[in-house]
């Protein structure tokens, strides 16, 4: 177990290293640079700026300098704003994580509850309604949903402000972000719950005199959750890192939208910083979901 964990962490470090290489060199291969579009900059100013960010050095040396900085916990400063990258990422991640965390929690809890209900009330009106709504929700792309929500609740009904500089209302973005994973988890839970309820061990539990509620929530649900966990790990990672589209529509200034602007700006340190951050988050979530998997399903061995 510990050995497996160490192996996975080492592998994760290698993965992240490879990602930095690929990101660094492809980023530099894209035409344009951080200071190319600067309107009023004379060649001298541009050269001075490039020297400041080491952009005048050979590519390989630039990479080495960047990685050295990383080891010292220095992710550099933005070529666009001049602010510290680590700081910027953390700030915008806070927004993404708050919205994403709420959305993920709602998706998981509601998904499991609705999925279980649909399985238990199979072939009833309740089941049909849940299946219909969840199918509908998985079919609507989040940007369409976000737009509709914004239009109906902010512009028509005026329940929420479209945009405000100081106080953010997260209700609409959370709904927009959670609906798809919630529906997906609902359907996943329903299928695996039905499967679990038909298993021999459920019959054994019933035959022991275990109450219906415990049969469902102890014996069946635990087994039914195994497939759900595989989906939830990566889902949380992608939701936490923010959906670029939803963040842009609701002008949240989260990590997702920062990432996109950094690319259009050719803000090299910011691109690298966000890429590494997202990679670490993704790899970390996968590792955690593996461990949870092991907790729920003892048959899984790691060696």
């Amino acid at each position: 177990m510990a050995k497996y964990f160490v192996k996975r962490v080492l592998l994760a470090i290698v993965t992240i290293f490879i990602i930095t290489v690929i990101a660094f060199f492809t980023m530099n291969a894209i035409p344009g640079g951080p200071f190319n579009s600067e309107k009023a900059s004379s060649p001298q100013v541009k050269a001075a700026l490039e020297a400041r960010y080491n952009l005048d050095k050979p590519l390989l040396e630039q990479y080495v300098i960047y990685v050295q900085g990383l080891f010292h916990g220095d992710m550099g400063i933005s070529t666009k704003t001049g602010r510290d990258i680590a700081q910027t990422i953390l700030e915008s991640f806070k927004v993404s994580a708050t919205v994403g965390g709420m959305a993920a929690a709602i998706a998981i809890v509601c998904g499991i509850v609705f999925g279980s209900i649909a399985a238990l009330k199979r072939n009833t009106v309740i089941d049909r309604i849940i299946v219909f709504l969840s199918t509908l929700a998985t079919a609507v792309p989040s940007f369409v949903l976000a737009t509709i929500l914004l239009y109906v609740f902010s512009m028509k009904l005026g329940w929420f402000q479209v945009w405000s500089a100081d106080s953010h209302n997260y209700v609409l973005p959370v709904i927009a972000l959670s609906l798809y994973p919630m529906s997906y988890i609902t359907r996943l839970t329903k299928t695996s719950m039905l499967d679990a309820l038909g298993q021999d061990y459920v019959r054994t539990a019933k035959a022991k005199g275990v109450s219906q509620v415990l049969v469902i929530f102890k014996h069946a649900l635990r087994n039914a959750l195994i497939p759900v966990i595989t989906y939830v790990g990566p889902m949380i990672a992608s939701i936490l890192t923010g959906s670029m589209v939803v963040e842009s529509i609701f002008t949240l200034g989260g990590l997702g939208s920062k990432f996109v602007t950094s690319i259009t700006n050719r803000d090299y340190p910011m691109i690298m910083g966000t890429t590494i951050f997202l990679a670490v988050l993704m790899v970390g979530m996968n590792l955690i979901s593996d461990l949870v998997y092991k907790l729920v399903d003892p048959r899984i061995t790691f060696d």
């Binding site: 021999d200 061990y201 019959r203 539990a205 035959a207 022991k208 087994n223 003892p298 048959r299």
Partner: peptide
């Protein structure tokens, strides 16, 4: 009480 035909599937795999 009852015991079943297939002991491989009659116990819950996720509990001790």
């Amino acid at each position: 009480s009852i015991i079943f035909q297939d002991p491989m599937t009659s116990l819950n795999p996720t509990f001790t």
